[in-house]
Structure formats: C-alpha cells, structure tokens
Design a protein around this nucleic acid. Structure first.
Lengths: 195, 195, 195, 195
DNA sequence: CATGAATGAGGCTTCATTCAT
DNA sequence: TATGAATGAAGCCTCATTCAT
C-alpha cells in the first residue's frame, strides 16, 4: 500500500536518473523512463506531476545524497583539511557513478519555463544546505588555525567549483589528467609563491 | 556576393546567440531565429546544415571572442597577476552581456547525439586555445617569481573554473555577493594560512 | 443491502448530474464523479456499466422528474391553458436548477457511438411519455373549446420547443429577456393578426 | 500563393464540417480532418490555431451561409409571411444537407473552456445578425398589417426555435412527421381558437 | 461490496527539415 | 539565392477501465 508506493516512486527516480544521465532532459522521453522502470507510461504520472517534476525530483534525490555525504563527513573526527579532502573524494566518486548529477551547470539558466523554475528553487535550497555544511568545516578550520580568515560561505562556493573543475577537465580536455590533488593543492595553497 | 553571404551568416549567428541565450537549445525554434534575423526559415539552411550546426557555430563565435580577449591581454605589458585579473574582468563582463555563453557547462554531456558531438569537438579545440594562452601567462608568472611552480595547464583549467564560480554563485545563491575579488584572492593565496 | 445499493446508486447519479452539468460529457472524468460521490472510482463501475451508461442514467433521472411534473399537473383541476402555463413554469424552474438537463439538444446527434445510441433510445422513450401527457392536455383543450383543432401530438412537440426557446434566448442573446410569457403568448395566439 | 492558401483553408473547413458532423467535436481527431482534406496533420495548424479554432470556424462558416440565405430572402419582393415560409424551407434544407449545423444547441453550455468560449462569442454575433434580419421582416409584417404587434426581436428567436423543432421532432420522435407546415401554422395562428 | 493502483491506447500539438517556385 | 508552405515524426499527458486485494 503506502510502502509499495514509496518503493515504486524510488524505482522511477532511479530509472529517471539513469535515462536523464544518458540523454538529457529534452531528449529523454517519458516512455523511456517508464520502460526502464518496468511500468506503464501512465503510471509515472501517478507519482510525478509531469516530466519537469520528475526531472527536478530525480536531481533532488542526487543532491539529497550529496548533502548526506557532507553531513556525515562533517561530523567525523578529523582535521578540517582532511574533511575537505574526503568530501572531494566522495563527491567525485559519486558523480562518477551517477553521471547525471550536475554539481551545477545547465544549458540554459535564463529562461523562465517550468523546468528551470523548479530546478532553480530546488537547487538553491540544496546548495544552501551544502554550503552551510562546508562553511562550518571551513569556519572550524579558521578557528583552529588551519585556514586563513576567509569568508566561510563564499569560500565554500569556490570549494564546490574546485570539485567541479576536476570533472570538467576530464571531460573537455582529453589527455590532461587533472586529478583532485591538483585542484585541492591549488585551493589550499593558492597560486602565489609562498615564502 | 561572397561578401553578402558572410554578412548574412554573421547576422544569423548574432540572432541565434540571442535566441539561444533566452530559450536554450531545445526550446528555441529555427523559426525564432529566422524571424530574429529578418529572413526566411529556409534561408538559414543555406548557411547552416541544421539546428545543431547553427548552435555549435553560435557558441564557437562566442569562444572566438573569448580567445581574442585572451590573446590581446596576454600581449599586454603588465604583470602575470594583473593579466589574470584583467582576463577575469573581461570574461565576466562578456558573459554578463551574452548570457548564452556558457564558459562551460551544459545540461547533458554524456549523450552522443548530434549536438553534443559537434559541441564537444568545438569546445575541446577552443578550450585548448584558451588554456594555452592562460598557461603561457602562468608560465611567465612562474618564471619571473610571481607564482609558485604549479602545472601551468592544469592551473589554467582551475583558473577558468574560478571565473565560472562567480557567475554560478550569482545565479544560484541569492543574497551572497561573490564578486570576483573573492575568487581571485582565493585563487592567488589559497585557503591555508600563510605564515 | 438492496436498500443500501439503491441509495448509493442514487448518490452517484446526483453527483454525476452535477459534474456533467458543469463540464459536459467528454470533459467529465469518472474520477470527478467518484470524488463528488465520496466513493472510489472502481465502485462506480459496480453500479454502472461504463461512463456512457452513467451519463444516460443521469439524464434519464432528470427526464423521470420531468415526467413526474407533467403527470401531476395533468391531473390538476384547472384549465388546459393554465396547465400548460404551469408546466412551462415548473420545467423552466427545474432546468434552471439543473443546468445539465437538456430538454433536448446535444452537440452531435448524428454519430452512432455508444453514448448517442443509449441516449437516443432513452430520450425517445421519455419524450414519448412527455408528449403523451401534454397531448392529453391539449386534446382536452380542444374538446372543451379552448384550443383550435390542431394535431395534439405534433403541437406538443412545439410546446416543448417553446419552453426551450426561453432558455436558449437567455443563453445566447444577452440583453434580451425572453421571459416565458412572450413565448407562451406567441404559442397561444400566433403571429398573425387576429380580427 | 495567397489564392492557394484561401482555397486550402476552405477545403479544410469543408472537411472539418463533414467529420465534425459525423463524430462530434470530441470524437473527431485532427488526423481525421487532415486525412479527409488530403493533407498532413501539421498543415491544419498552419491555418487554424487549434482544434477549437477549427471547430468554431467550421460552424461560423455554416452560420455565414445561413445569414446569406436570410439576407437574400429578406430582400425579395414577397409578403412577410412568405418570406418566413421561404426561410423555413431554405434553412431546413440547408440543415438537412449539413447535419452538423446546429441551428443551436450543444451538449454543454455551462463550462468555460476554450471551445465554449469561442463558440458562444461566435454564435452570439451570428445569431444577432440572423435575428436582426428576421426581426426586420416581422417588423415589416406588423407595419403592413400582416402580423399583430409583437416584439420583433423576441419573436425572431421564437421563430428560429420553431424551425429547429422540426428537425428535433424528426430525430427524436420516430413515426411522427412534423413537417414544417405544422410548425408554421402554429407559429402564425397560435394554439388558441380564433373566432 | 469497495478500493485505487496500474494500465496503455489515443489525441493534440510542435517543429526541424524539405522542396517547388 | 531566397522563400515559406507543407510535411510527418515524435512526445507529453489524460483518463476510462480493470483487477488484485
């Protein structure tokens, strides 16, 4: 009954994440997702209002997992720097497994249609959660002398982008292996020569 | 007549950049672009093979402009750091004016359809150009003692992502003003406390 | 339990009349009716074969009420003309309360599908009943010298249309108040000048 | 070019009138009409915004023809009564040929959806035209002593309904032949006995 | 008797692309 | 070269109906 519904909803989301990952929002047909879920087309609409809703929901699920990862790491008993390193590893690994998960970045963020509206709203919420968790880690690092006194929240945004840069390089710059250590090294030490 | 062709081609690209910026690839109709160009739908196909071709071409034009900016700055007679600062300003300003120009980042980079294929190929070429120009600046900086001895190319990638992070924050994190100086500060000095 | 069945059937019909009135046959969803009845969708199918059956049944109920009205008035101890006037008032009032009840008149009477077939058959039966009752009144009027010697049945048809004309005018001709007295006046006296 | 367009539009309307007549609005598929017109589905949308638009347009065409008939008869040099008789004949004959043309009367006039809205608006306009033409005839009849001094417009409404009653009877009351003379007789002379 | 989750056929509409002019 | 009318494939979504519980 209710239990079963939950399961099916989850099942659809999983299928959707896979298909959206492969084809993107527009080229994905609802029938693809239904087929992948092993259910009828109409059934999807019992769980999601429309394609946009399903898309946003499937991304929200990814972000939920990311937040979960951050939450857990944040509570571990290691140094701030180690936490950031661990987060980098875990998020990269997650994104590698689930290619859809766009840490951020979409074709078109200017239009005001249904998808974008839901997406923006969802992402703002989720990113706020992520940024707050990272900011807390950075703040702790500042307090215990690991980090210089930067703005924790703004720095969190850059930290997330550092992670993204790794994927980006992998995808667009063949031959260049920008593994995470390069990005983190730069993130921690900066470009300027230290004396 | 060659002259005329060129002009019309340029005109279509300009129109396409505007419409794609507003609506994204999928929601943009060829007729929108034709209308915006003041020509007939069929005429667009005399200059571009198909919608994907036009899309990639319109982005390529943007990247061409970006490369042009980098080329000019690279040749200026200022410090490496100042060059990077100037590039940041100019690219951000360009992206602000032309919202479509996605320094990088699209909905879906995993699919193998027409658009992505052309896009990937074009972007790899263009990004290589950009990265080489930036790498040269960084290399100069290293040589003259401004920067520590990082990998110039990989650092370039990270540099471009830093620029992107500014736009990203602006869009997704309302209330947070992540102006470019924060990013650059971090990029140059790193997170770790310097003694 | 037979009692209970009856009640639920009646309840569904009442709900159906309301929803069909508001949305028409095609735009009404079975779930709307189920919801309005406070029961589950599947349950409706225990009482009615399909949507068409329910539609025809819900109209048949209306016609049953109309026949009831005619039957009662016919037996009253007033003049034939007064009976017709009273019937006009009562039917108009009934139709006003139950907007669905289409004294007659549907979008499409030519098709041979399920709905129309059942509808036609039901309406023929019901209209025959109504016409016979009115014809009896008219016949009495002829016999007692109130009316000229028309064909009672055919005249009954025109009488019903007279009633309908009132509703029709109200709906389609804004600003024009064709109250029942106008139609009846014409029906009784005709257009030609009497000397 | 423009000429051809006009023709195709007309062709589609003719096809639409036929199919709508046979199946009604909801059961008619746009593909039916396209097929009947001998063109592709998409082409219909070059001439009509959507199905509702086509429906209303196809009925408007019928009403235009009816208005044309009235206009011509009104100008003839015969008595008012003869004009009304002629109109009755011509409209009945037209409606017989084109079964769709619903002098008036649709399933559901209460809902506020697209079809009904356009339909209502169109019909109000067209009926006003028809009523004014008939009212002029009746007014002339009153002035020249043929008719008693009724309200010309309201009587026009009633007149149109009389015509409709003929079709109605034919359809719903098998075995009863209510030819037009019965209706007109009643319309002119009324039910009450004349002395 | 009652439920309501699941089904899947079916219809409207969009739009990239072609081609006769 | 330029046009734009015509095409028709493709996809989202609705909803009557069924059936296992």
């Amino acid at each position: 009954m209710k239990r079963q519904s939950r399961n099916l909803r989850k099942k659809i989301i999983k299928a959707a994440q896979g298909v959206f990952a492969e084809k993107g929002f527009f080229k994905t047909a609802m029938s693809d997702i239904a087929g992948e879920s092993g259910i009828a087309k109409g059934t999807v609409y019992l769980y999601f209002k429309d394609k946009s809703d399903l898309y946003v929901s499937s991304l929200d699920d990814h972000f939920g997992n990311a937040v979960q990862i951050l939450t857990e790491v944040e509570q571990e008993n290691i140094s701030a720097k180690e936490k950031l390193q661990k987060i980098t590893s875990l998020l990269l690994s997650y994104m590698n497994r689930f290619k859809t998960f766009p840490l951020f970045g979409f074709d078109n963020l200017n239009d005001a249609d249904k998808v974008t509206k839901g997406l923006k709203s969802m992402m703002r919420t989720r990113l706020k959660q992520m940024i707050q968790l990272i900011a807390k880690i950075i703040d702790d690092g500042i307090k215990n002398g690991e980090f210089s006194s930067v703005d924790p929240e703004k720095t969190s945004v850059y930290f997330l982008n550092t992670i993204r840069a790794v994927l980006f390089a992998k995808f667009f710059i063949p031959g260049m292996t920008v593994d995470k250590s390069v990005g983190l090294e730069l993130f921690f030490n900066g470009l300027k020569k230290r004396r």
